[in-house]
Write a protein that binds this DNA or RNA. Sequence first.
DNA 1: CTTATCTTGTGAATGTTTTCACAAGGCAGG
DNA 2: CCTGCCTTGTGAAAACATTCACAAGATAAG
Lengths: 206, 206
Amino acid sequence: MKKISESAVRRLSLYLRLLQEAEAAGSDTISSDELAARGGTTSAQVRKDLSLFGSFGKRGMGYSVRELLREIRAILGLTRAWNVALIGAGKIGSALFSYRDFAARGFHIRAVFDTDPRKLGEAWGALKVRPDEELDRALREEDIDIAIIAVPADAAQGVVDRVVQAGVKAILNFAPVRPRLPRGVTIRNVDMTLELEGLSFALAGR
Amino acid sequence: MKKISESAVRRLSLYLRLLQEAEAAGSDTISSDELAARGGTTSAQVRKDLSLFGSFGKRGMGYSVRELLREIRAILGLTRAWNVALIGAGKIGSALFSYRDFAARGFHIRAVFDTDPRKLGEAWGALKVRPDEELDRALREEDIDIAIIAVPADAAQGVVDRVVQAGVKAILNFAPVRPRLPRGVTIRNVDMTLELEGLSFALAGR
DNA sequence: CTTATCTTGTGAATGTTTTCACAAGGCAGG
DNA sequence: CCTGCCTTGTGAAAACATTCACAAGATAAG
């Protein structure tokens, strides 16, 4: 199997969303041109991306929305549910917890952790905020697939180490650090300051 | 002037952070090797990135931390402050509002908007949540450079259109849509579902 | 002053991603 | 069944990004 670039995966994920919108709008089929226009890319790019995984279209006709949805879901591993742990019950953690899109796509938050004694025991939906000490055991017991790191920068590397030690293979990191990781663990960093600085660069260069 | 890739700008922003850490740790100089190790890249990449903008190092010695900080800040346009508007006073908006890193880097939130009548007038720090109707006027009056979009998906395109109409040239978008934009306006999309799906893909492919 | 040691800055080479362009199919209408 | 019109899937070309590799400059020590 060929290596798939991160940007190709990102775009697939985007196509998935566009297809859901098309389905909601009642479209039965969609062309690469249409997907491209809605996604801000080109039709050649769309076709190349899809061709990495198979031939899902009909020449002259485009793609069946229903069918392509099914294929992309399968490619992205969205046919099953994933167990997620949220580490850090601050503002960002709280915002993520109530983000409905996650559950809608099969990402279920099974546990929330924090170190602040005042937060421990707080009810978050059906869950209670649990102390740091339970982290290692809980990750295994709840069979957590993905850890979301929403702790301050200086705590992030420590949390990452423990999470990895507990066998978690995927991390979504909101702390403004680039944690060291062993091979075989995947991380995605969401770094809002970086994005703002990118905008600053664009504004300044004119 | 050559075209600078988005990933190069991202890395510069990362180097900036690493340099701040090095400065805090008391280092006077730093080599491309060291920056690379801390940033998870290679020394050739670091030198190439910097060489896009000039020669800031001393052969045999590395870079002066102080001086490189100054240079990168200038490149990224961080020697001045930027006026930011936050549109959407929900959970995400609230988390962003209290994110201290923004102000620390010169991104000052000057106004907060929402459509929910129950939120209007709420005190957010020294600001009050303002109604949608004031958006257009306020963006101009407060001389807003950057708009942060933290509204539901179906409202995002409308907000983007108004913001652009008011002359804003940079947008940080948290809504899960890819808004249409005229040329000359820069957008950065922060799309958390996309990131999670990227992790799902990595987990599924094993 | 000379030598040994470091680390930058940068062309050239390599690798990766995007775009081009068109043959191959598929459908509709007559 | 044939013609005209679409749109896919995909090699090949072009554009872009990263890595290599080394001359050149800087320092320090003798």
